[in-house]
Every structure is written in structure tokens, then in C-alpha cells.
Simulated assay, not measured.
Amino acid sequence: MENPRNTPRLETPRLILRRFVPEDAPALWELLRDREVNRFLPWFPVETLAEAEKFLWERFLDTYRTETGWRYAVCLREEPERPVGYVNIAPGEAHDLGYGLEKACWHRGLMTEAARAVVEQVRRDGELPFLTATHDVLNPRSGGVMQNIGMTYRYTYRERVEPKKEWVAFRFYQLNLTEPADYVWKGYWESHPIHWIEDTGM
């Protein structure tokens, strides 16, 4: 039985954030097959609707059976039945915030609006001590979203990303919720020997 505290519905001035449903597979397919949208993500763009359905079940639908979580379909208010993106917090020690948005919705502040709403819900729930997020150094706009929701840069590390088999430098951001302001989660720093702190001016 699904827990009602898992991914509660959220509304913002322009968006509705809700749970994914099986009928969202075609819209998610359009998002996941776009090579530009998925350029900086660790997986390859999906090729078929069946792949999108598998992604939907594994990443979202199956997780709603767990006790708590925040895994949202992002929809425009005028079209609440069609997801244009997603925001989720991955399970695990890092509490990693991830997101994606279709190209037609870029450069309008929509992902900042969605991510901020999720962060506010996490604060209300009071279950996580901090949130983290990472972005490819070649994708600074993603870092802009992180900054806009109050996250701060902590360090950079280099990782070989699978299944793409590419070496990528990631900037690591963190937002402390109950931890002291200067606390830094060092999980990626410690697990990747190539790491450094950039003089980003942030």
C-alpha cells in the first residue's frame, strides 16, 4: 500500500507537481529520447516506448511503495495530464536532487520553481538533514538552478560515468537543512581520488 506521505502533490504559480502514473509513459518517452535534453545525464537517450515504460516503473512508480520519498512529474498548470519534466530526490546517503525538463520549457525559470517547491516540502517533512546535487562542469545552467534554490558549491570531482564510459568533472552542491551551515558531505570526494575545490567566485 502506498504511503500518502510519499510524494504529496504540490502546486506553484505555474506548475503542478504530482506522482507519475502509467499513462505518463509517452510524455516521458518524448523527454528521455531528446538527445539535447539528455546530453549531460549519465544514461543514453531511450530509443523505444518500452524503454521509457521500464524507466518509468523503475525510477518512479515502483518507488511510491516505499515509506517516504519525493519523486515528481512536473506539469504545466494548463496541461496537468502531460509531464514536461521531473524532479526527484534519489534514495541513499547523498539525498541527491535530480531533474530534467523538455526544451520548449527551458529558460523560463520553471525548473527553479519546481525544485524550490520540492525543497520546501522536504523542509516541511523534516526527514532529511541535507540535500546534494551535481552538474557536469560543461552544463553551468544546471548549476544555476542549484544556486537559485539556495544550494552552495562545495567541491568538484572527476568520475567515469557508466554506461557512457566518459570521464566527467562534476561540481557538487549542498543545502543543509538541519546540519550546521559549514557541514560538507564528503562521500563523492572520498570515493573519487581526483577532486579539488575550484575558485568559482561563488
Rank of each mutant, 00 (worst) to 15 (best):
L138M: 12
T134L: 06
M146C: 04
E81W: 05
N148H: 15
R160Y: 06
P91W: 10
P163S: 12
L131E: 07
V161N: 00
E79F: 03
E113V: 06
Y153C: 03
R160P: 00
L175E: 03
S142R: 04
G85R: 08
V118R: 08
G92R: 01
A169L: 10
Y153F: 15
W167G: 00
V119R: 07
A169S: 12
L97P: 04
E113R: 03
E78N: 12
K103L: 09
Y157V: 02
D96S: 12
V122H: 12
I89C: 08
E113D: 10
E120H: 13
E166I: 10
E113H: 10
V145Y: 00
R141E: 09
K103W: 04
P163F: 06
T152M: 06
R158E: 14
F170N: 05
L138E: 15
L128K: 15
Q147H: 11
K165L: 13
V161Q: 12
E162N: 13
V84S: 02
Q121P: 00
D96T: 13
A169I: 10
R124S: 02
V122C: 09
Q121V: 09
L76R: 15
P163C: 01
R123M: 03
W106F: 06
G85T: 05
P91E: 05
F130P: 12
S142M: 07
R116L: 14
G98S: 13
Q174A: 02
W106C: 14
P80D: 06
G109R: 12
E127R: 15
R154G: 07
A169H: 11
T152C: 03
